[in-house]
Computed example of a mutant assay.
Amino acid sequence: MYPGIQFSDKVVWITGASSGIGEALAVRMATRGSHLVLSARNEAELQRVATLCRNGGAGDVVVLPLDVSNYSSMEPAAQQVLAHFGKIDLLINNAGVSQRSFCVDTDFDVYRQMMDVNVLGQIALTQAVLPAMVARGEGHISVTASVAGKVGAPLRTGYCAAKHAVMGFFDALRTEIAADGLQVTTITPGFIQTNVSKNALRGDGKPTGTTDDNIAGGMSVDDCADVIIAGFESGEPEIAVGSGPEMGLLQLKRDNPVAAFQALEQMATQIRQTP
């Protein structure tokens, strides 16, 4: 366990802050008096979230549009934040994109995008922020991974590969920077009521435009944010969040991996048989 984070007066940078989990976290941190940097590609939506945060009690709020797949923009963005605030207390790598297609039907460019956005973009931004944290001897880096970063699920070969990579990178980073006084928290959501499936890519690279039943019936994004905030405040290095049967897969994979594989194979068969 880590010392719990007290968010008052902390500088928190959130990517993917224009909707979903990122937005909900920003709003909750605002009520705790955090200073916020809100990043995503959609500036208009970021401005909307910024207004909610200012009205909710945030300190200074900076809107910083960012495309995490544009790696060369990370260093200038980090320097801009540091010039404004003088520090970054917590970076939450939350931007991401999912997938809904069988491997045999998936263009290779979809796999490339899974890695660019979900893995390499997170690493690039983390590398841009890390030196200032190390020099200060204080800081916290987090990433929104997924249950898909622990188990392999059908229709998500690229997404699972990316989220497994994210878990591996940040688990390893945790070991490297602990002696510098820095902390890493990984977050593994299950089915949360966001636009993740609507924005997920089909095999041809186009968004599905539809919401999965399991996402629609998942944990509310507000409840999800409450669990994550509580995890930060209590010092959990890995925060699992969700309320459905998918969360049981985490334990099943550890206790009986063969049973977990069989359950997921049955899921794939059911998907194939569904008209």
Rank of each mutant, 00 (worst) to 15 (best):
C53T: 04
T274V: 09
I21K: 01
G244L: 05
G59L: 02
Q262K: 14
D9L: 00
A216E: 07
N195C: 07
S39H: 04
R254A: 14
V62H: 06
A30R: 09
V61N: 00
A83Y: 03
S101G: 10
L46F: 03
P76T: 14
L125S: 06
D116V: 05
A128R: 09
R28S: 02
T15N: 11
M29W: 12
G218K: 07
S19N: 13
S72I: 09
N70W: 05
L250C: 06
D212V: 00
E236F: 07
G158L: 03
A83G: 14
A179F: 05
I21E: 00
A44C: 00
A161V: 08
G190N: 08
G137E: 09
A95R: 01
A26C: 12
D109F: 02
M115S: 11
G158K: 02
V27P: 00
V143D: 03
S98W: 03
L66R: 07
Q113H: 14
A216F: 01
M133P: 10
Q113S: 14
G158P: 04
D180C: 09
E236S: 13
D9C: 00
Y71G: 10
S101W: 02
A24K: 01
V134N: 05
G235E: 08
R254T: 09
A240Y: 10
A78N: 02
A24C: 03
G22V: 05
M267I: 13
I14S: 01
G181I: 10
I5C: 10
S142R: 03
K198C: 13
A200T: 09
R174W: 03
V221A: 04
D180A: 12
T186P: 08
T188R: 01
D204T: 08
G16E: 00
G235S: 12
N70R: 15
V49G: 04
T175E: 11
M29T: 00
G33K: 11
P207F: 08
L38D: 07
Q273N: 15
L46C: 05
E138R: 08
A172S: 15
T194D: 06
I177H: 04
I177S: 05
F261L: 12
S69K: 11
I192V: 15
L182I: 10
I88S: 00
A58S: 15
E176N: 11
N256C: 09
F7L: 12
K10Y: 01
E75T: 12
A259H: 03
I14R: 06
T269S: 09
V147Y: 02
